[in-house]
Design a protein around this nucleic acid. Structure first.
Length: 826
RNA sequence: GCUGGAGUGGCGGAAUGGUAUACGCGUCGGUCUCAAAAACCGAUGUUCGCAAGGGCGUGUGGGUUCGAGUCCCACCUCCAGCACCA
């Protein structure tokens, strides 16, 4: 009887109900048992689940179920990253409230997740927009403020005109808003920051511990943190005792510095120009630069473009400390105020950007490093900067020193003679978290005229988000318009005061949710320390590569902070990370705008969740992109049918073990053991689900070939049972149903021990070997296992096919690779 | 430019330095059927040959080795991230 659409619906609903009613996947701390924490990146509830979610969560579910069968105490939770701007937009569009819309979406998502049969502990479900959750956001914020890690400062910030809110550096992609793609501009605002830079060193250093993270994610974080070693060098302003400090990673080129360039925003630019003939030109340049947004200045359009390296002479001069030379100070828009000291020493001969600027503005150049391949390097002839290694010239007593060595020597020398100091600069900046939005956690601060900025006392948390804020999408914090929210008494002096009306960036919410899952409904504390000590770290985290920097970096930061508070014992939250590939259709990412979306619901109603799961796992390794292929889906559907039919037609309940095994029996046992070995190794060696499933297919092919009057029902049963057990993590519903149909006593297959295999059973009496002559395969033989060289010589050299290639030639070597091949050299 | 990764049949993809193309899809042929679908069986890198058998094949060019998709060197192409970060 085929496995019909009706069967699918009946079977899948039956087992989903069973798992749910009996809380099969409820996880409880048990110190006697080895824990395993499987986590997928929780979804933003924007509607129903899509194929990307299906892939992400199916991967996680197979891992969770596999680990359960291996005897681990598995925690596999799910929740919703529920704050965020789309809810506000949806509320305006549909004339509803962000809260109503979000909770409706959560219901839809939950239903979709249940239909996929995922093994979640639903008792731990959480949504970040619940005040029972964001209360602890506020708690963390206050703790950070106490430690000086949350602070307010005024500075130019990234501003998205379309979203009418600020953005973190990490949220600006190619100069545009990560969400709406609008070009980001700079705006001077007072905003809240988290001092992630306090942890720069350990965020970088601890990347080395993350051996089970994809190397590209580690590399991306490394780049983002961006540690540069070099020197700060003090250039005296000519005619004063004042100093301009520049940062360089190339102190070896200090003798080649022919001018200094300051960022247009650098405070010395105006000071130097004042009263000189350059004053007007400098003022005009500063104005012009300010009008070109930073995002444009930093975007690819200006890169490596000499024409665009704009700048003017400030009218002032500086003294190069190492040789006392007076050199001009320029301002140029290729120097960024945000990085280093906002000032550079320009060495046009050995830095391409300086070279372009110097050529554009006719500034002097001097060679201080000789190219060993072209020892007559001269500025007039250079068409680009020489940035490679070489020995120093024109550098006084450092002449002849190789530049890598000179970097250290010159830094030390300058430090000793107080001309500069060895220094390190970071690319990472503090994290701007204020958002002028409604649908987020209120920042728990109060402004009092007398007392200044006053934290909300802990016992007044949560600061609840008012329900009635007017959301127009037109900018400005909606909370500022809610009088009963804004008006508050100062906790210190009880005078009239005003609440902070900005909310937290939603990445704050997701930076610690994995800890909250450890005791999701604890209303006394952020989480139970003992529970967290047991469950953390997350053993396997699964999610999209798009979170390689933001979310993962912030989560690492929060974990380090909470560790410093003594609340968690681990410095890193995620032991293993798997970034799943995207789901494509016709070579493009599925998206509503492209109209190439495949709805999981439709696939489920036709083929069932199990077929969908299996196709997604089989069609590509989990990290790779996956091309949607309807024919492939049907192939997996056919396979599940074959297994189902085999259980129905050939499984014999109560068959007892046969005594003697013939060749056919041994072959089946061999295939059974080989399949268990291969599937187990595919799982243990990095979750190669595609090869795991192919090994189960090979086993089923062997079962199909096991036919005829000599079939031993007990052996056949064993092979079928093994196949069903191996399939259980992948296709849990149909596996449960078949397990029950075979009359097994277990109430669920979920915790039946994973099958084992024996190496002995894999050893056949004879093996098939190949014979190579001069590296080419010329014949194949069936020979006794572990046959020695003498035996093999007699068999192989007597072979006609081999002799054709060896006849009349000397055999120089006869190499034996046991049970694999022989290689003859003539 | 820097960083990370990938190039294997018609397609998705397999291969601890040891018989390249497992498994699946597709295609072709067959069984069953009045017919079709489904299901089942078989074939399927390319080329020369009636056949036996041989040549060539994992982006390109070299190298190491009895033996290289795999290791080393140099390149090409593609994907991704970062990017006037001094």
């Amino acid at each position: 009887m085929p496995y019909t659409t009706n069967d699918i619906k009946r079977v899948e609903e039956k087992w989903q109900a069973y798992w749910s009613e009996h809380k099969i996947f409820k996880a409880e701390m048990d110190l006697k048992k080895q824990k395993y924490y499987v986590l997928e990146m929780f979804p933003y509830p924007s509607g129903k689940i899509h194929m990307g979610h299906v892939r992400n969560y199916t991967i996680a579910d197979v891992i969770a179920r596999y680990k359960m069968m291996r005897g681990y105490n598995v925690m596999h939770p799910m929740g919703y990253d529920a704050f965020g701007q789309p809810a506000e937009n949806a509320a305006i569009k549909r004339n509803t409230s962000p809260s109503e819309w979000t909770y409706k979406c959560i219901d839809d998502m939950r239903a979709g997740l249940r239909k996929m049969g995922f093994s979640y502990d639903w008792d731990r479900e959480l949504a970040t927009c619940d005040d029972s959750y964001y209360k602890w956001n506020q708690w963390i914020f206050l703790k950070m403020a106490e430690k000086g890690l949350a602070y307010k400062k005024g500075s130019p910030v990234n501003w998205c005109p379309s979203c009418a809110t600020t953005l973190a550096n990490e949220e600006v992609i190619d100069g545009a808003c990560w969400r709406c793609k609008e070009l980001v501009i700079q705006k001077d605002l007072e905003q809240w920051y988290l001092k992630i830079t306090h942890y720069s060193e350990s965020l970088l250093e601890d990347l080395k511990k993350l051996n089970n993270w994809p190397s590209r994610v580690v590399a991306m974080q490394e780049n983002w943190i961006g540690k540069s070693f070099g020197a700060d060098i003090f250039f005296k302003v000519k005619g004063t005792e004042d100093v301009i400090t520049v940062f360089t990673t190339r102190p070896d080129t200090i003798f080649g510095a022919t001018y200094v360039t300051l960022a247009p925003e650098h405070p010395w630019v105006k000071k130097l120009a004042k009263g000189t003939s350059q004053e007007a030109a400098v003022a005009a340049f500063i104005e012009k630069s300010a009008n070109i947004s930073k995002s444009l200045r930093m975007s690819g359009a200006l890169l490596g473009n000499a024409e665009r390296k704009e700048g003017v002479f400030t009218g002032g001069y500086a003294i190069n400390p190492v040789n006392g030379e007076t050199i001009p100070v320029w301002t140029g828009d290729y120097v960024l105020m945000e990085y280093g000291t906002g000032a550079i020493m320009a060495v046009p001969t050995h830095d391409q950007r300086d070279f372009e600027f110097a050529r554009a503005h006719h500034l002097p150049m001097r060679v201080v490093i000789q190219d060993p391949k072209n020892p007559d390097l001269a500025p007039e002839q250079m068409t680009k900067a020489y940035e490679d290694a070489g020995a120093l010239v024109n550098s006084k007593h450092f002449n002849g020193t190789l530049n890598e060595e000179a970097k250290k020597k010159i830094s030390v020398w300058m430090q000793e003679s107080k001309m500069g100091r060895v220094s390190v600069h970071w690319r990472l900046r503090d994290w701007l978290i204020s958002r002028q939005r409604y649908w987020g956690a209120p920042i728990p601060m109060i402004y009092c005229k007398a007392c200044g900025i006053v934290p909300v006392p802990y016992d007044q948390l949560p600061v609840k988000l008012p329900k009635n804020a007017p959301i127009t999408g037109e900018g400005g914090s909606p909370l500022a318009k809610v009088k009963e929210f804004v008006d508050v008494k100062c906790p210190k002096c009880a005078a009239d005061a005003r609440r902070e009306t900005d909310t937290m960036a939603t990445f704050f919410d997701s930076s610690w949710y994995f800890l909250r899952y450890c005791s999701a409904h604890n209303d006394r504390e952020i989480f139970d320390v003992k529970e967290a000590a047991y469950w953390m770290p997350v053993d396997q985290y699964i999610g999209g590569i798009e979170h390689a920097i933001l979310h993962l970096l912030y989560s690492r930061f929060f974990t380090k902070f909470l560790k410093d508070l003594g609340l968690v014992g681990v410095a890193e939250p995620f032991d293993r990370l798997l970034t799943q590939g995207m789901v494509l259709k016709d070579g493009e990412v599925m998206s509503k705008s492209k109209g190439n979306v495949v709805d999981p619901d439709e696939v489920i109603s036709k083929f069932g969740a199990d077929t969908l799961r299996m196709f997604i796992l089989f069609a590509a390794p989990p990290e790779d992109q996956l091309e949607w292929n309807p024919a492939g889906l049907e192939g997996n559907w056919r396979f599940l049918n074959r297994v189902w039919n085999t259980v129905e037609a050939r499984y014999v309940k109560g068959a007892t073990l046969a005594v003697a095994m013939d060749a056919q029996d041994k072959k089946l046992e061999l295939e059974r053991n080989a399949a268990v070995k291969k599937v187990t190794e595919s799982m243990e060696g990095g979750f190669k689900f595609n090869t795991a499933i192919s090994a189960i297919m090979v086993l089923m092919n062997a079962v199909d070939k096991y036919q005829g009057p000599a079939v031993k029902p007990a052996l056949l049963n064993k092979a079928i049972e093994t196949a069903v057990l191996l399939l259980a993590p992948f296709v849990p519903h149909v596996a449960e149903e078949m397990w029950q149909a075979m009359g097994k006593a277990d109430k669920t297959i979920a915790f039946v021990p994973w099958p084992s295999y024996s190496e002995e059973a894999l050893k056949t009496e004879t093996v098939r070997i190949a014979a190579q002559v001069n590296g080419k395969v010329r014949a194949e033989f069936e020979v006794p296992r572990d046959a020695d060289e003498a035996v093999l010589r007699s068999i192989v050299l007597a072979d006609e096919g081999v002799q054709r290639h060896t006849a009349g030639k000397d055999i120089k070597k006869f190499i034996v690779i046991k049970n694999k091949l022989v290689s003859i050299v003539v």
